[in-house]
Simulated scan of single mutants.
Amino acid sequence: MGRAARRGWALPALFFGSFLESAIFPWPIEFPLLAEMLRGRKHVFPAALATALGSAAGAMAVFIVAGIAAGLVESWVTARPEFASDLDEVRTRLELRGGLAVFVAMLTPVPVQLTSLAAGFAGLSAPVFALAVLCGRCLRFAAMAVLVFFYGERLMEWWRARPAPWRHLATGFFVALFLVALAASLWL
C-alpha cells in the first residue's frame, strides 16, 4: 500500500478494495484506509471519500444484481443456514424501516452484502437505497477521518517513541489479526 501510495495509486486502490469489500467478500478495509490516513492530514479526507464511494458502488452492484436475479440468488443464500437467518432478519427490518434500516446497517458490522441483497430482494427503491448507503458509508468513514485528523499525528509520535522490539511485536500482531480477519471473511 505504501508503494502504491507513493506512486499515486492509493486512492484508486482504496476505492477498488472498498468496492470488493462491499460487493464480494467482507474484509477489514479500515486497515489500509488507516495506513493511508496516517500518511498525513492532507490524505485523511480524500482516503475516507474514496473508500466510502467504493463501498457505495459495491453495495449498489450487489443491490442491482439482487433486484434482477432475486429468485436465483435468494435460493442460493437461503440454502445456507448461516446466511438465511441473517437475510430474513435484515429483510424484515427493511420492509418495516426501508432506507433508515439500510443507513443504520451501513454504520454497523452487518455485512454490506447481506443488506444489499436483502434490499434488492425486498424491492427497496434504488434511489432510497443509494442515498442511504452513501450517507451511511460517508458518515462511518468520515468519523474515522475526523479522529485520525485530530489524533493521528499524536498517535504516530507516541508510536515512534516506543522501543523498536515492542513496535515490531505490535506490528506483527496487527498483521496477524488482519490476516485472520481476511481468512475468516473468505471462509464465511
Rank of each mutant, 00 (worst) to 15 (best):
98 G>D: 11
47 A>F: 04
108 T>C: 05
94 L>E: 00
93 R>K: 09
21 E>G: 08
21 E>N: 13
146 V>H: 08
14 L>D: 04
66 A>P: 10
62 V>R: 00
20 L>N: 05
158 W>N: 03
82 E>N: 06
57 A>P: 01
92 T>E: 14
38 L>R: 08
100 L>D: 09
163 P>G: 03
57 A>G: 03
131 L>V: 15
124 L>V: 14
61 A>W: 09
137 R>I: 12
163 P>F: 00
28 P>D: 09
8 G>V: 07
44 V>W: 01
178 F>M: 07
52 A>D: 02
63 F>V: 14
23 A>M: 08
88 D>S: 14
139 L>S: 06
90 V>F: 00
181 A>M: 14
149 F>R: 04
132 A>W: 04
175 V>G: 10
114 L>M: 12
108 T>Q: 10
176 A>L: 12
130 A>N: 05
173 F>L: 13
13 A>D: 02
25 F>V: 15
145 A>L: 06
110 V>G: 04
158 W>C: 03
127 P>V: 10
122 A>G: 12
16 F>V: 15
23 A>L: 02
183 A>Y: 15
27 W>Q: 11
1 M>L: 13
78 T>E: 10
138 C>S: 15
104 V>W: 03
114 L>H: 02
73 V>Y: 01
179 L>Q: 06
11 L>G: 02
33 L>V: 13
184 A>H: 02
76 W>F: 15
149 F>T: 06
77 V>N: 00
91 R>Q: 11
81 P>K: 09
105 A>D: 09
122 A>I: 08
16 F>P: 04
24 I>A: 15
125 S>P: 07
82 E>Y: 03
119 A>R: 07
9 W>H: 08
169 L>C: 15
112 V>E: 05
23 A>C: 13
109 P>L: 13
